[in-house]
Design a protein around this nucleic acid. Sequence first.
RNA 1: GCUAGCGUAGCUCAAUUGGCAGAGCAUCGGUUUUGUAAACCGAAGGUUGUGGGUUCGAUUCCCACCGCUAGCUCCA
Length: 726
Amino acid sequence: MIQVKLPDGTVKEYSENSTAIDVAQSIGERLANAVVAAEVDGTVCDAFRPMKEISGSSELSLRLLTDRDAEALGVMRHSCAHIMARAVMRLWPGIQLAFGPTLPHGFYYDFGLEHTISEDDFPKIEEEMKKIIKEEEPFERFSLDRSEAVSFVNEMDQHSKAEHIETGLADHGQLSFYRQGEFVDLCRGPHIPNAGKVKAFKLLSIAGSYWKGDTGSKPLQRLYGTAFFSKKDLKKYLEQIEEAKRRDHRVLGKKLGLFQINPEVGQGLCLWLPKGATIRAVLEDFIKVELTRLGYQPVYSPHIGRVELYETSGHFPYYRDSQFAPLFSHDAGQLVDFWVRKLEEESLSAEDEEIFFKSSRVMNCDFEFPPGASREEKIEILKAWEHKNERYLLKPMNCPHHAEMYKAMPRSYRDLPVRLAEFGTVYRHEQTGELNGMLRVRGLTQDDAHIFCTPEQVEEEFRITLDLVKFILAAVGLDNFRVQLSLREPGSDKYVGSEENWERAENSLRKVLSDSGMPFSECEGEAAFYGPKADFMVSDCIGREWQLGTVQLDYNLPERFKLEYTGSDNQPHRPVMIHRAPFGSMERFTGMLIEHFAGAFPLWLAPEQIRVLPVSDKTLDYANEVAAELRKNGFRISVDTRSSKVNAKIRDAQLELIPYMFIVGPKEAEQTAVAVRDRIDGDLGPMPLADAIAKLKQEAEERLVRQVAESSFSGIEGQTEASNEY
RNA sequence: GCUAGCGUAGCUCAAUUGGCAGAGCAUCGGUUUUGUAAACCGAAGGUUGUGGGUUCGAUUCCCACCGCUAGCUCCA
């Protein structure tokens, strides 16, 4: 017998092999039908599996999960992924199963298949899935030991699964499988009792992927879908996706004339149109005031720098693939650069080298190879030539420039921390497929700064910086964020700096984050190679997380640039560098904000804050007087001088999401008043112009955020990347 | 870069099963002088992303390229 404790505290006895469904049965037939999964001793599991097997004890606690429990949704979605794979297998035999995990809003399944699935195939697949669901066949679980499992999956021709058992699951003695009809899959589970529990589902999209994410391995097809316990929930979800599309920053950016990314200008190169540029300028002014308050000093650096600068910092050639190609002042620069790389790769034939050499002569190069020169000697000669000629890189980051500025004068411990700030524009040659509106671009401006401090000051500087990021996010009402503390990967040698420094840095960051009370998670292996970092992950309206602000510790660059300060002991010491960017980049931050506000910016950020609407041409003169007064008070405004009806002018201003309209006619002109219309609350009635100005001035100065479009997805809870697979 | 899909007027979208490319909004010109979400009349706007091919004929079918979108990989 086993003792089962239920959530209400009652304890009941059941026979040895009882399942959660048996327990539900003993309570009532309807409950037994409603059970989707179970939670035994806090672990979500199959409702049809003997509870003792899960708990390992004869005394256990049980929670029955029905369609009202969030945990049940993830279980059902994973079962739906199996059903989808089964349907695809029926339609196109020979499918190679890979992985099929649950996602926050759905699921996917990766598989290899000769036939290329397109969206036209979705109805067919969905039809087959419906058939499977209608049959309500049960899911069954069984385990095999390692050797049995390998031969079992090989018998089924699922060789990827066999490989996974050998590699990824090397430490598992027993492997579990789930069978549903003719479909069997290596899977950790849990699953729903039978396919009939899936009440509403939809295939969403198809994409390419790779076995275990390795681009060098075999390509797979990834089929995305989602499932819910009711048709209503599914419909709601699909409507929310539509809503998310409507507030897409690319759509709004075009409609509101904020920015443009124009193929004629170049991929990923953002053109800030006047209205978008205004928002950016306001944000920059806002942050500049804070930086001055915190003792930062402004600096400027050019958009290009010598390649040698980045060789010193270590960014070249390490990040060569994601940088724009160097600019060479000598015609043969490109040739020699390529030549060196071919020699380094040892992939240059004698004939090709002869062509290179002839070409270099044509291009007036002055180097010679001594007879019988070795590969190394040739590289040395070519590199010496390169160093003699100018090579520039479009600035991929600002740090090396700031490091040089630190070195511009001798530093004493009394001067530290030195905080150098710059809105620095950098260029990165991101892969074409990575580009995404303003959120991922090739030319971006970081609200960058580097703090040079003593090791003892790190903690305090980190704390101040965290507060700054928090303050700035709060100012725009972005409060849906978490901090990710990125640490070393234990045992890896890809990091620079001493063990002691890393230990100290990681502990400092952890301590400050704990003290701050901010929610944070630790992530091993995500650190930069030069130090640990804290990244602000902010959620957008379609549940995507974007890394905005970042604070990073760096022990590497001070070393490479030989930065020093004189300590109180009159000895040279090495400072620590803190890289930080509260917005991340102006592009990404503004893009996020457009979606966050769904284009309806608060008064302090709105590109056009007030529009003056004369009722007719007869009050144009007064409208212009009002406009002059508003401009004098620093507002960004315009006057709608068209000869159309007030209704039309209001409609246009409303659609352009302008926070306030001042409507003026003969009545207002007589009393130096304005009829105020609020974008949110509508007509506020007439008030003296001076009062209206005072009211809006206050609202702008307080940076009041009155309206934040609700996040569409806030209502839907899902597991974050639950991996039901092994 | 990879996989799949898409590309028609400034914008949103029609149409052509291969046979003169069409509407609304925006724009421009006129009429209208207007009170809290769309006044009326008219005009203009296109080598259907680019380049090839098949065809009597291609915007439609085929190929390549460019760009966009979703996802993968990447993000100092």
